[in-house]
Structure formats: structure tokens, C-alpha cells
Simulated assay, not measured.
Amino acid sequence: MKILYVEDDARSAAAVGELASQQGDALVWEDNGGSALLRAGMEDFDVIILDRMLGDIDGLTITQRLRESGIDTPILILSALGRSSDRADGLDAGADDYLAKPFEPEELLARLRALHRRASGKAHSAVILFGAFECHVKARTAFRDNRHLALSPKEFELFRYLMENAGEIVTRQMLLRDVWNMDFDPQTNVVDVNIGRLRRKLEDGFDAPALETIWGSGYRILDGRKR
């Protein structure tokens, strides 16, 4: 793997870098958010590690900016803030995984390998079409009846996942696992809040509903056509 590691603690970066080198991975270290954003925009990486609390730009902001610029490289956030709500904030910002400090370098690299395998195994079409909706995967843009929908990075991930499963019921557990990369329920309303935001953006200015809530089961995207 080619790894971008954004960390202002030189000792932590050295420890992870040494282990990565032993395993045949190439690690590029940046000690501030500004340089990391430039580096991520100029080079291709397999995975990105972001310390949440940096001196200039915090890791959540970096994650949001990367997603807004169309960079979908898997991101793992490191933080001394390890509560479920902190983890939910990181994943909601667009990260794929979240690891609390202190951590073992071996666990960090194992998580990165899992993220890399999952990303490499995805075979998405360039454009997903369903009824009135279009999902342009690489451009990370969404349309309804040829009208552009301004979605946040997480809203787009939700939209894409629903489009990939068009016609099927998507459960809360599926969304936590595949969109937020959580194998547990954080007991927050992060799914409900984001589904609500996405529903409003998909339906604003249109007569036909876009999302169906199946109580006790989950959600399903509708084709958006007027009956």
C-alpha cells in the first residue's frame, strides 16, 4: 500500500513508518493539514491516516475538504477522543474508519489493509441510473430529472448506497456497517438525521417522493417518477 500519514507527533509517525516499511508498504508523512491537502491532491494513495487534532487544520475538516474535492481514498482518523459520539462525528465527516489513541501500530496497519481490500473489491459503474435519478460515482454528483442535487459527502455516500441497492430495503444495520463502517450501534441518531437531510434534498421542488421508510425494517429509494 501507498499510505499518506498526517500526524504532528514525529515519534508516532516513525513507529508506524518503520512497521509499514517492514511489511513492504510505502508511507508518506506530512506533519500538518495544509501540506497533506496539497499532497493528497497531487498524488494517488491507497489509504490516508489523519490525526484528528492537528496544529493548523483539524482532521475532520481535512476529511470534508478531500471528499468535497472528489477524493474518495479510504480515510482512517486517529484521535484521543474515543467516545461513540466522537467516532460518529468522524465517520459522518466522511472518514471510513476511526481508531482511538493510544493504539498499537499493528492494529492500525491491519485496519488499513481491511480498508484497502474493501475499496479494491468495489466494482462500481461510472453512472448508476434508477428512474428519475442518476448517480455519477467518480464525479460524486447526483441528479434528479437532470437537475443537479447538492449533496454533502456523507449524503452522497448514502445516495450511492441506496442507488446500488435500488428496489431493495436497506436496513439501519446495513447503513451503519457499509456507509459508516460501524460494526456496532453507537446509539445515536446519525442514520436518521442523515436520511432526513438526504430526503429533503432529493424531494425539494418535486412532487413525487424519493425515499420510503419501511417502519421496523429500513429505507428504500423510489424511482422518483410521478404516478
Rank of each mutant, 00 (worst) to 15 (best):
A123Y: 05
A210D: 03
G34Y: 03
V16F: 05
D185L: 08
E168N: 14
P105H: 06
G55M: 08
G82K: 05
N181G: 15
W215A: 11
V193Q: 10
V137I: 08
P105A: 04
P186T: 10
Q22I: 06
A10C: 10
D8F: 14
L78H: 00
E7Y: 12
P209I: 02
L66C: 06
I221P: 04
R177Y: 09
S69H: 07
R199S: 11
V137L: 09
L78Q: 01
A123H: 12
I49K: 00
V16R: 03
L222D: 02
F103D: 03
A100L: 00
D185V: 09
G41V: 04
K154T: 10
P74G: 01
G131Q: 04
E18R: 11
A88H: 03
K2R: 15
D44F: 06
K138L: 11
T73N: 06
G121H: 11
V137M: 06
R144W: 09
A123R: 13
I214G: 05
W215L: 09
A150D: 14
E212M: 09
I77A: 01
E30Y: 02
F130A: 10
N32M: 06
S84A: 13
G167F: 14
I48G: 12
W215H: 14
K101V: 04
E155A: 09
I195Y: 05
Q173V: 10
Q173M: 04
T188E: 12
L176Q: 13
V137D: 13
R113S: 07
M42A: 15
F184V: 08
R117F: 07
L91W: 05
T141N: 12
G70F: 01
H116L: 11
Y161H: 15
G167V: 03
R160K: 12
T213R: 08
E18V: 04
L66M: 13
G216L: 03
M1P: 00
R83A: 13
L175D: 09
L27P: 02
Y161F: 14
K138H: 12
I3T: 10
C135W: 03
A10Y: 12
A40Y: 06
D207Q: 10
P74Q: 03
R144E: 13
A123E: 13
G196T: 02
R177E: 15
M174T: 13
G218V: 02
I221L: 15
L37S: 02
F206D: 01
G196L: 07
D145N: 15
G218H: 04
D183Q: 11
P74S: 00
E203T: 04
L4V: 09
L211C: 05
D97G: 02
F130C: 07
A119S: 14
R39I: 00
W215I: 11
A208H: 07
G17V: 05
S84G: 01
R200Y: 06
P153F: 10
G33S: 09
D72E: 09
G90W: 07
D207W: 02
N194Q: 12
G24Y: 02
R113Q: 10
R117E: 12
P153A: 12
L78P: 01
M53S: 14
L129S: 13
